[in-house]
Amino acid sequence: MYDFAYHKPSSVADAVALLGDSEAKALAGGQTFIPVLKQRLNKPSAVVDLAGLGLSGITVTATTVTIGASTTHVTVANSAEVKKAIPGLANLASWIGDVAVRYRGTIGGSLANNDPAACYPSAALALGATIKTNTREIAADDFFQGMFTTALEPGEIILSASFPIPEMSAYEKFRNPASRYAMVGVFVAKTASGVRVAVTGASQGGVFRHTAFETALSANFSASALDGIATPADGLNSDIHGSAAYRAHLVGVMAKRAVAAAA
């Protein structure tokens, strides 16, 4: 990696001030960013470590699960409260990456990075989460804006994500055989107002809602409701691990399995 200044502020205000330098970068769990630095693919003037901001923790109310931005995947996966309130979310966190990634990686880092093959964006989008930052609250529908792109402004830091508790939810993914990122991940959430289905990994544009599946499942929440509903391969990724057509097929398979697991 290149040389950079390292800061570990203890308040959000200090972190925001340090990130005022346009060449500075925020560091959450570092499970993407540190490898990027090691390969010299990024040359920040400063790295601002967010671990000292006190943003970890999980709060569960009757209607909402709120997870602090610095909360690690393993904490979410092991939380009895999350498992009870939104089992699909705990399950999603339980098989992100590998053990090392789950002990260091954080929900805030994952959402802010918006890797098109990351797991968390699908849960945030399907559950209709609200992302709270130091300046505002952003609905998940507005937050994800294409691969590695979000609504976050320079200097804006995620403080927490709040997930409305659904009636049922589940996550299924087909892992990239090499990297074990989601090649196709589907999060399905059923609430009183309908069903939301979010797909990660498959699309060149990053996480997206599968409205055809949502309509069908809102009418009949069962795997068979998805029979015959094709997912267009246009705009899906194609690489040595799978063509766009294969990914399109897998979206259907994973969605059905998620519905079966949720129901």
């Binding site: 055989p177 795997a223 998805l226 029979d227 015959g228 691990h241 799978g242 063509s243 294969y246 097929h249 259907g252 398979v253 059905k256 399995r257």
Partner: peptide, 20 residues
Amino acid sequence: ASPEKIWSIIQAGRPAMAAE
């Protein structure tokens, strides 16, 4: 023998097969 290769053979053998 990647999953996609295997799946493609199955698809070719059963073109009308639904997603699952």
